[in-house]
Structures are given as C-alpha cells and as structure tokens.
Design a protein around this nucleic acid. Structure first.
Lengths: 215, 215, 215, 215
DNA sequence: CATGAATGAGCTTTCATTCAT
DNA sequence: GATGAATGAAAGCTCATTCAT
C-alpha cells in the first residue's frame, strides 16, 4: 500500500482526494496497466478498490473520465522538470558537457519514472486510441518538451558540443534512445538482470558517440 | 481494396483464404488497429466485412483466435528476413560497412513495414496484455532476431567496425533507434512532412557516430 | 419566480413551507410535468432546486411522497369551489340560467386552472399508474364533485332548464366538454391563437344546444 | 393469447413478425399500458415475453424504438378509416343525417378501439413526453383527421344540418365529446356498468342537441 | 436542518458465442 | 459454408435512499 500511496502522492499531491478516491485511483491504475483500459471493467475496479460501483461514478462521470483524471496529472509531472528551474541550471551552463546533463536528467528522473511506470504504461497504451489524450499529449506535452529541449540542443550546438543537425532530429534521436532504454528496462524485460548504472552510461555514450569504433 | 489485398498477400501468401476470410481479416485489422482489440466488437467486424456474425466464428473459434491468426503470420514475416538467406549476404561480407547493411535493411524492409503497419500496431498494442502473444513474441521472435543480430554484430566487432560492448546492448541500442525512427515517422507523427531518405541517413549516422561533434 | 411563487401559494397557502421546501416543490412540479414522474430523477430535482439530494428526503420520505404532497393539495383545490359556499349561490338560484352558471364557473376557475396547469398535468398523467392516487381521486374528488354537480343538475332539471337524462350522464357530457376545451386550449394546442372568450361561449353554447342547426 | 394475437393482427397485419417479436410486442404493450413506459423495465418485458433480454435489443435498437414501433402503426390505424373509402360513403351522402353518420362511425370503430385500447392508452400517456411522438401525432394524425372531418362538417353545414360555426370548433367539440365518452367508458370507469348503446345514443344526442331542454 | 458521499440494486444496452436453418 | 436470430452474462451507468458529519 505504501508503494501506491507514494504514487498517488507523486501524482495528486496538490489535489485533495478522499480515501475512497485514492482507493479507486490505485485500483484503476493497477487494472488499467495490467489488462488495458478497455479490457478493465468498472465493477472490477470497484471490487479491487473495496467500494461500491456507484461510488466510482459519483467521483468520475464516466469510465473515460477516470482514465483522464489518472493520466492528465502524469502529463503535468512529465513536463514538470522541463519547465521548472531545474532546467535553468542547464541553461545556466551548470552542466558543461552534454553527457553530464543527460546523466543528471536520467538519474534525476529515474526514480519518479519507476514509481509512475504503471501510469506511463497506461498513457502509452491509450494514446493511440483516445483522440483527446493524443491531442493533450501532443500539444501540451510533446510540443513543450520539444521546445525546451530544442533550446538546450541549440545551446550545446553553439558550444560545438553537438553535431550540426536540425534540433528536431537531434531531439528525436536522443529522446527515443532514452525512452528505448527505459522501455526495454522497465516495460519489456524487467525480469532480466540489469546493471542500471552501466546501461545508463552505455546509453549516454551511445547517444554521444554512436556505435562506430573510435580509432 | 488493392492496398488491403496486398497486405493480405504479404501476410498470408502461402495459406488459402476464402474471400469471406479475407474480408474478415481486413476488417479486423482495420478495426483492431484503429480502436484496439478489446474495444472492437465482433459484430462491428462482421458489419465492416460484410459477413454475418456467425461467419466469423465459423472460421475463428474465438475473438482471440482471430487476433492470433492475424498477428502470428506477422511474426513469421518479421523474422523472415533474418533467417532466410537474405542475411547470409551480410554474413558473406557482402556489406563491408555496417552503414550499408543498416541502410539496405531499412530500405529493404520499409515498404513491407509500411504495408504491415496496422498489424504491427496491433502486435505492439496487445503484447503487454496477451501472455500467449508475449511469450510467442519473446521466445520465437525477439530471441531469434536477437541471436541472429548478435552474430552479425560480433562479426562487425571482429572486423573492428563496431564498438566493444556486449552484443545485447549494441542490439538494443540499434534496434530501439530504428524502431524509434519508424514509430515517430509512421505512428506518432505521420502527418508531419518527412524527408524519408534524409531521416533514414540521419538515423544510421546517429547509430554509427552518435551526436557528438566530430572534430 | 413570482409565477411559481404564486402557484405554491395557491396550493399550499395554509401550510408552512420553508424556502428549501418551496424550491423543491417548484423544481419537482416543473420536472414532473415536463418529463413525467417516473422519468424524473430525484437528483435532477435536487439540482434544479439548488439543494442537496439528502434534503429532499428529509422533507419527503420517498419520491412518491413528494409526488403525493404535490398532487394532494391540488385535489383539495379542485373540490374547493364545489364544496364551499361559492356554490351555494348557484343553489340559491343566483344564476337563473345554466349558461350563466357555466360561464361564471369557467371564468372564475380559468385563472386558477392555468396557474395550476402543470400540477394538473401531473395528476392526469399519474392517475392511471398510482393506485393510491387513483383511489384518492375517485373517492375524494370525482365522487364529491359528481355529487355536488348532480344536485345542481337536478335543480336545473326541475326548473326545466335541462334535458331529462340521468344526472351522471349529464355530468359526464358537460364535464368532458369543458375539460376537452381546456385540454385542447392549454395542453394540446397552446401555441395556436385562441379567442378565449369566444371559444368559451361556443363551448357553453355547445353544451346547451349541441351542434344541431336551430330552425 | 387469442385476444393479444388479435391486437397484433390488427396493428401489424401487413408486416411480418416472428413469434418472438410478437411476444415482445404483446408483453411491452401490456407492461407499458399498465405501468407506463418509463416505469417499465426491459428486463420485465423480456421476462413476460419469455425471451432473453438481448433478444429485445436485436429487434429494437432502443427501448424507445420499441415504443415507437408499437405506437406508430396505431396511428396509421387511427387515420385509416378517415382516409379510406369508408368515409366516401359519407361524402357520397350515404348518411343523410349527421346522427346516423356519427353512430355508424362510433359503432364501426368501437370494436377496433376496444381491442387497441391498451395501445391507445400508451399513445395518450406518452404524447406529452416524447416530442417525436407528439410531432408525428400532430402532423400526421391530428391534422389529417381534422382536414377530413372539416370537409364532412362543411358538407353537413351546407345541407343545413349543422350549426354555423368554424369547422375547427365544430370538430373540436364533436371529437372531444366522443373521446370523452370513450375515455370515461373504457379508461376511467371501465368497472362501472354501462349500457353502451344507450350512452352512445346520449352522446350523439348531446352532440346534436346539447343539454338544453327542448320545448 | 442541511449536506453530499456512499450504497447496491437495477437500469438500458452490448457482447462473444451458439445453433437451427 | 454461411446465416442471423437467440442467448444470458456482463458492460457502463443511474437510481432512490441512507447516514455520518
């Protein structure tokens, strides 16, 4: 329970949720991420949450509403680090080298990501099917992160630290590499043994220097 | 119709499908990839396919059966290129440089991938929720491809063309980069304008040399 | 608001209603008469009345209770004119001619009827389905009115003003004609243009002389 | 069963209904007319009809659909007599006197009306709440009947058989008198003892000559 | 008094599946 | 082989009502 309580706190810290609401959210996250949104029934959520089915609909008008209220705060969390002054340090040249910036970013976010993993899974799963979610994600999240990252990329490019390539391509390549690592690590093969620090380093190294042999 | 006919041919070439079966498959692929497996009803498929509801169940015992019969041949197709002698050319040192190999592979497969994209989408969506699918994928596909790719990687490593790093890490990084590109290109932002050849080159360049500035 | 306030006053003058109660009553009348008793939810009434759902049930034990408490006073109002000494004037031969009596009655009651129309609509709608209501209506209202009217009819018959026919038949014919007029006027075709005085006269003329051409 | 079978035949003679459909219709008519449309549940109808609940929705997309498919043919039946050549006899002066026409009409239709009474009850009950029904009724039925009746009225007025009064008023008065009789007889007080022929005559007499004493 | 969260039975509707034709 | 009517379980959701605050 403390695990989930933490997740709830991470996601809904500012909002005031009743106990029942928390239980519903936790149960919904668990079921959605295990079986998918469509394949999860509200009665199942109710049972798992230990509340009456009607209670769910008192708090969330529809099942989709419940999905949204789970996934929307996640998006806020996801842009969070890119908009708050955490990132200003980067812009303030705190991190001279891209490597250090990348490592700090990944390390800094790893814990949050792990905790929010089930919700992230839900988000990724449902984006293709929920147009509202998709739009929200593209316009509110992807665009904002992208803009921020582009600025940073341009900064490093000007410093001669990064290859000359349109920032959007650079961003795409870097972001998908990181996500590819995280998805492999935590979604696809969580059961394998991973040396997290080593793999993080390898991913960063890859992003910076590619796979070509340095002679 | 010719589009879908092609897809069907791609996937089920060896098997003999009646017209009705083809229509069912096409309708199912369309609906599954648009709304997801769970959110698609068999009656909807029947209507779209122009057959009676019962007809679906004559050919496919259950709805899941239908899913499997769509997605299983895809897997065969996906390993195909890695197991048939196409690849032996690589091993036969036909492609001296990794770049050429990567480019040839992507180009060679791009058309097939595009055509099979809806089915791939279905596969990716359902893998987390269908244990049978997951197992099938991991053991039959991922493992086989991985083994093959590892051999190739080792070959290039021995030639001094690739960095010294465990082949599994190399494979992960390369594959996620390519998939990241394809997913960005065809799933997430299909509506953006893409210079496909250029972006392919950039992806390959990235895989080979990373993002670090060459001095 | 003053419209509804008036209706409330008309119906519940003697009783003491809190503000909340009034709002509930008004909201209930509006919804019941618009969508029917069964098709109206208590939560809807609560929302329209601007009170909490629980508040309704503090004042009215059940939903049916609410219906009854709306419709019962209406019945009292409906017999009212026939039992109080208003009517004695008729018996006291104040109105020599039936026509005058009918006209006075209709005119006298028209305003009240219009104001209470929504409640009357509810009563008429629910009588077939609520046995208690039906019984209440038949025994308390219909019978009493009928008795009173019969006396009056007999009076006029003795005076030779009315045809010789069992009073119950006379009553039925007269009452349905008047109700038919009022229902046509206010329920079925309220949007048509009506010359109220003229149609009232025609209705009375019809009751008295029928449709046959006088030669 | 034969009673209901007859009703079904009366209403749906031209259409082809399966046995299950008939059972559903019969059960729905029974329940709707007893408890009202809103207060009747589809599960109740299913149980009474001896079919699965799903079966209802295979034939009728929604509950309202079921209502409509019951009530729409009734309307056709109701205009029927006024548009078919039954009525031409009247226009052909077959009935010299209005009385005879009225009597023939009532007698002629009484049986049908009695048989269709439950459906008529449903129609009357739901017209105020179902805008589609209301519109259908007003435009398709009321208007058509009214037009027909107006012609007939004018005919008799020209013959000097009827009072000079706008045909719409004449129609209203006559129709509400007849309906008032039928509703009193069959809906409000079906349990009283009625001498049907006598009351029919009285109603007609009333329509023709009113309640005023002939001297 | 008033509230509104909570309930669980019941609502309309959809579902995957069966089977007689 | 193909149909589509029939099923009944289960879906999402609403309901009247209760009760701790």
């Amino acid at each position: 329970m403390s695990e989930e309580e933490l997740m709830i706190k991470q996601l809904f810290d500012e909002e005031k949720l009743t106990d029942k609401q928390k239980q519903i959210i936790i149960a919904a996250i668990e079921s959605f991420s295990e079986k998918g949104y469509s394949a999860t029934s509200t009665s199942e959520i109710a049972k798992k949450a230990g509340v009456a089915e009607g209670t769910i609909f008192r708090h969330y008008k529809t099942k989709k509403d419940l999905l949204m209220s789970i996934v929307a705060p996640l998006m806020a969390k996801l842009i969070g680090p890119f908009v708050v002054n955490d990132f200003n340090k980067v812009l303030d040249r705190k991190y001279d080298r891209v490597e250090d910036f990348l490592k700090a970013t990944i390390e800094n976010r790893r814990e949050v990501l792990i905790k929010l993993l089930p919700v992230i899974k839900i988000l990724l799963q449902e984006i293709p099917f929920q147009p509202e979610l998709r739009e929200l994600f593209l316009e509110q999240i992807a665009k904002k992160i992208f803009d921020r990252v582009s600025i940073i990329i341009k900064g490093y490019q000007e410093k001669g630290e990064l290859i000359e390539m349109p920032p959007e391509s650079v961003a795409r390549l870097a972001i998908t590499s990181i996500l590819g690592y995280l998805i492999s690590r935590y979604v696809l093969f969580p059961d394998l043994e991973w040396d997290d620090e080593l793999e993080t380093d390898r991913t960063i190294q890859f992003i910076m220097h590619g796979l070509g042999k340095k002679e």
